[in-house]
């Protein structure tokens, strides 16, 4: 494994640990939220479907079942969500598409979260010129018309590898997170336990990662849940403009994009992938909401 892969793995483990710890401590409060339980169940269900795609999908995603007779077939018992222009089963493609879309969403968010957290923490911890330089960079990042920058960054490659797509999306999505983390770190670094850690000789890295950041976990986790949804929507938008994975490979975004040409004759090819995106993003927003309530020690209820 290469260094970035190790770092991604370490970050994933760390974040999972935080979430687990937070859930264990507060799961009661988390599930008090009216829709959080359903949302979590939906996300788990879709993740299982995505992972087990070859087992649960009735047809392979590329299979043109019968291009003459089964083209644009409306939903039926055999073809649950109908078939598309090439007589491919929409339900199967949706399941395979979940793999790509959810993976891009989760990994893109992870990149954004890691970069945003590190930049925000460093800026907030060192303050002075480090803070000034980093935050002016963030100001520029927030003023970049993101969809144009993505289109341009993606134009750097002739054939776009999926890893690059994830990286590019992640690297243009961290600006908001870094502001959030910086604000949190700025207030935490003045606390007694941080001075205590410094007094016993802990280095900056240890103070930041072992003492400051764990206490800023709540807003970071909430923004992570929202981040997945945002990346998902962004990926869909890019696919819609024709930038994304090569043809037979389905993602929810490019399914919508392909469907628009047969919108009138086969609306189901457009309708269902969009609904899938909306449901996942909604579930993620619910989870973020519930996490915010559960992790916020300040207030009891809203």
């Amino acid at each position: 494994m290469t260094l970035p892969e190790w770092m991604a793995l370490a970050a994933a483990l760390l974040i999972t640990r935080w979430i687990m710890a937070a859930l264990r401590r507060r799961y009661g409060r988390f599930f008090r939220h009216p829709t959080a339980g359903w949302a979590t169940a939906l996300l788990v269900f879709l993740s299982v479907l995505a992972v087990a795609a070859p087992l649960v999908a009735p047809f392979p995603y590329w299979l043109q079942i019968d291009i003459v007779r089964l083209k644009n077939h409306p939903p039926s018992w055999t073809y649950l969500l109908g078939t598309d222009l090439y007589s491919r089963d929409v339900w199967s493609r949706l399941i395979y598409g979940a793999r790509i879309s959810l993976a891009i969403g989760a990994l893109g968010m992870l990149v954004a979260l890691t970069v945003g957290t590190v930049v925000g923490a460093v800026a907030g911890y060192y303050r002075r010129w480090v803070d000034a330089v980093l935050m002016r960079g963030v100001d520029i990042g927030l003023a970049l018309p993101r969809i144009f920058i993505l289109l341009m960054a993606i134009a750097l490659w002739e054939r776009l590898p999926i890893g690059v797509l994830v990286l590019v999306i992640g690297l243009t999505s961290w600006f908001g997170t870094s502001r959030l983390v910086r604000a949190e770190v700025l207030s935490l670094r003045e606390r007694d336990f941080v001075s205590a850690a410094r007094a016993v000789g802990a280095g900056p890295a240890r103070v930041i990662f072992a003492h400051v950041l764990p206490n800023a976990a709540a807003p970071i986790i909430v923004s992570a849940a929202l981040g997945v949804g945002n990346v998902l929507l962004l990926e869909a938008g890019l696919s819609f403009l024709g930038i994304g994975l090569p043809p037979p490979q389905p993602s929810w975004g490019n399914m919508i994009a392909d469907g628009q040409h047969t919108l009138l004759h086969a609306p189901w090819t457009t309708l269902f992938p969009g609904l899938a995106i909306a449901l996942v993003v909604m579930a993620l927003n619910s989870v973020a909401d519930a996490l915010r309530d559960a992790l916020d020690p300040r207030e009891e209820s809203t």
Binding site: T35, G229, L233, A236, G237, F240, G253, I256, G259, Q260, L263, L264, P267, T270, L271, P273, G274, I277, A278, L279, V280, V281, M282, N285, S286
Partner: peptide, 24 residues
């Protein structure tokens, strides 16, 4: 719940659906 649902729509998808229903 309604606003949460709508807030989660991909804009271009909503556009296509509106186009289909109110246009076509």
């Amino acid at each position: 719940n309604t606003t949460l649902f709508i807030y989660s729509f991909p804009t271009f998808w909503l556009g296509l659906i509106l186009l289909l229903v109110f246009g076509e």
